[in-house]
Write a protein that binds this DNA or RNA. Structure first.
Lengths: 335, 335
DNA sequence: GAACTTTATGCAAACGTTTGCAATAGGGTG
DNA sequence: CACCCTATTGCAAACGTTTGCATAAAGTTC
């Protein structure tokens, strides 16, 4: 088994110096003679010494932790299952680590209602990244008002007094619609839930493009939950009831698009000949589905970097603004 | 902005008691008169009071945190992208929360080589769940030897002196092979990398079943990385070079299966008529692909529960053993 | 009503860092 | 050689909890 945990004082004794010197040495403080510093660092390595983070945090009033709060839409306690969300989290994780911070994975279940109290006063994290604006905008608002360092992944166009990073959803919707029309679509259909901030913008962009092309008076909308299952069922249902009265689909996410495509394929509707399909996100499956899925790519890597750097800037007391990520249309076989 | 952070002493003063009483009251210690307890708890709520976790951890020598260490196979710094892995993490997260613990999301990049030192001595977490045995079995071994409370998601049949939770991979492979043969396959193919502990067991089960059915002397193996991309390319390549010399595929994961299916579909090989396909995991896409994918389901929810409860048992000083999760064949259209 | 138990609370130490300030030693200057 | 300056190190307080022990008040027993 292991020997008793070494504390800083023990390490100092081994080195024949005071704890203050040891502490400074480990933090590379130039007050300490270079030679001594190196000797102590060397010793620390040999003995597998590591600082007690709890003590350090208590003393410094800083945790070097960033919390990621996944804002689930549903009230039901359920695991996340859209690969895109998880890609975002994963890229945030990398960015956080690259800055020498650790990542506390949390959710509204743990944090309760008073986020500022829980994370900041509770010294669990120095700042919070909220993924998804969800329905709890009020809680975000409150935490922000209380002075909690905060960055939100969502739609940057949202009028809010906290910092938001997200894709240019409006443009994404516009590009998708224009692409569909350029392929000859006369009656494209939006698949998703426009109540949701980000999706609403995509829908707006979509409609704007369609109307300005003079295509239809109102753009078609099929309102569904953001799951492939819901999309599958909705398209199935629509084909059964209304027949094929659309020739293009702009799905609010790739998972939704894939669900819709399954329904189409089962009924022998040809993609892209009868119906052109465009998704959103560019998850791995978009490329691997058959036919592969044309989609609007969100740059999650850049998103992670930006979310984190903006949060750290806030911690440094800087004033930071929301910002919008560029999106790219990835043309594949489905259109 | 917010008022100065309330500490326990302040709350105590407000209530007209000592900090000790306040502390005990918040922890529902029966030493304190019920009436007093309730009064103080009420007061705490009103003032949005929350304990300083850093101080608490320092004093208690416990963090109430569980670290999840994602053991990436690749040396390259990359984000995880198999939805299955993330499903596992997500289910662990739920289980962890349900037990009142928090989840520190980590990886070998942050933890370095000395996991015990980093997490336990560093008071970052009370225990660690390692997801994926990866290539770093030596580090796991070392951490375990050093006395780090630890549970690993991997293949439970692995001979090791740490606790492993995982599916019955051997049986999974066996069932998959038997299923393929029951559908008339004479020349099934394994797609994956048998070096990897879990996948190796699946391959063993697969071969065992095939041999005991007297089908072939050696079972066919196409060794590839565990990505849909690799699968797509490998199958493409094989079809081009060898033609269609197999009539069934058992893929080591659903993502791999989906990649393979894409290659088949592109070359107009009919699924399941020409080739039957079985995957592993049962990710959401398995159901939504077309044709939908027959697969061996791993119960990630139960996995999360077990991993966490076994870890907590260790923290309580109990002796715990590895255990194997049951798997289920989900029959769909691809076979 | 004295001795003793029970109940409820407070005192003060301890957890392991970090850091302002004091202290010491060595070197240079006039 | 007295003075000052610099370079290096140590002392001790503080961060905010929790908890063993002491204490005080109230109730019980003979």
């Amino acid at each position: 088994m292991q020997q008793k945990k070494l504390k800083l004082a023990d390490l100092a004794k081994l080195a024949g110096v005071s704890t203050s010197t040891a502490s400074r040495a480990l933090n590379d403080n130039p007050l300490i003679k270079l030679e001594t510093r190196e000797r102590i660092q060397q010793l620390a390595k040999e003995h597998n010494f590591s600082l007690n983070a709890a003590a350090s945090r208590l003393r410094l009033q800083k945790t070097k932790v960033i919390a990621v709060l996944i804002n689930l839409d549903s009230e039901t306690e359920q695991s996340i299952d859209d690969p895109f969300l998880l890609k975002v989290v994963s890229d945030i994780n990398l960015a956080v680590n690259r800055q020498g911070y650790e990542l506390l994975l949390s959710n509204s279940f743990m944090a309760g209602e008073d986020w500022h109290g829980y994370f900041i006063d509770g010294r669990r994290a120095d700042g919070v990244i909220v993924v998804g604006q969800g329905k709890q905008q009020a809680l975000i608002e409150a935490a922000s008002k209380a002075g909690m360092p905060l960055v939100v992944w969502g739609d940057p166009k949202t009028k809010a007094d906290y910092v938001i990073v997200g894709s240019d959803n409006f443009l994404g919707g516009k590009i998708a619609a224009e692409h569909l029309m350029s392929k000859g679509c006369k009656a494209p259909l939006f698949l998703g839930e426009p109540e949701h901030a980000e999706l609403g913008e995509r829908y707006n962009g979509f409609c704007t493009a369609i109307k300005s092309a003079g295509l239809t008076e109102q753009c078609q909308l099929l309102k569904i939950d953001i799951t492939s299952q819901a999309a599958y069922e909705a398209i199935n249902h629509k084909l059964r009831n209304d027949g094929l009265d659309f020739d293009g689909i702009f799905a609010c996410s790739d998972m939704v698009a894939l669900g819709a495509m399954k329904a189409l394929k089962e009924r022998y509707v040809s993609i892209p000949n009868d119906v052109h399909v465009v998704g959103f996100d560019d998850i791995a499956m978009a490329d691997i589905s058959f036919p592969s899925l044309t989609t609007v790519r969100q740059d999650t890597k850049q998103a992670g970097e930006l979310l984190v750097s903006k949060l750290l800037a806030q911690l440094d007391g800087e004033q930071v603004a929301s910002s919008q990520l560029e999106i790219t249309l990835i043309e594949r076989q489905s259109s």
